[in-house]
Amino acid sequence: MALLEVQDLEIAVRTKGKLLPVVQGVSFDVDDNETLGIVGESGCGKSLTALAIMGLLGGTTVRITGGNIRFDGMDLLTLSDGERRSIMGNRMAMIFQEPMTSLNPVYRIGDQIIENIRQHQKMTNAQARDRAVELLSLVRIPNPSERVDSFPHQMSGGQRQRVMIAMALSCDPKLLIADEPTTALDVTVQKEVLDLMADLQTRMGTAIVLISHDLGVISETCDKVAVMYRGRVVEAAATENLFTELAHPYTRGLLNSIPVVDSDVDWLEAIPGRVPTLEEELTGCAFHPRCALVTKLCATTVPQEIEYKPGHSVRCHFSGKVAP
């Protein structure tokens, strides 16, 4: 049994009295010491999936309407609030995208780390402070014993993201969910942060779910990848297989859309059209209005998930006919 198992997850948003499905039948699992990448464009449901795992979908507008999420054998969706609180930030932690807005600007960063540690572990304030300094040096903040008393605005974006990582790691989580952790950062800083996460993983054996829109980041850091399009996982495989033998036209389109730094092309093969909005009702495969391989079948029938190669699943009626 894997550490995290997500099965047939369904999430819906309530707008104007209607329930619109935003995540449909999403399944994946992640094991210790493994990194799963979830890739897709805005609105594909990747962040909502992460929030669902962390139990952060509250209220009446966005809610989980089906499926289950198991972490270390526990069913996360039936936990009481108290039980959930004892796991989140402790055995499971999340790094958010915005290092600028996810730290509280009026508290010193040390105090914010200490708060999380003391919430979950029996420690005196002084012990927790030592631990905070240790964590800051772990994420390579220079002069950690002084910087522990800094306010967020006194740090750069890269440093703040490291503080977020330090906070997430403060209780040695078994699972780390990182939602676009480097998107707001410069490339050189991004490299440092990604290297740091990989290094911490080898040392502590953490399982990581990395959510990103950047195929390069996914390719360099993940063991396996799930590609999402409008609420569904359309293709999933081990990273090296996905990019070598990709079977879904959307994955191919994404890959062709990226201007690469190592070669010249005259024109990018862009995917025509745009990502459909939530309100648009789509029958059949959600990608069919933009797909070059489209047939009548695509417009009427939702493709089932099939095993294209061992360990490589895809949702497309024409998987395998995608140009290499």
Binding site: V187, L215, G216, V217, E240, T244
Partner: peptide, 9 residues
Amino acid sequence: ESIPRVKIG
């Protein structure tokens, strides 16, 4: 060097 690249095969 810092740019993450998609590795194909």
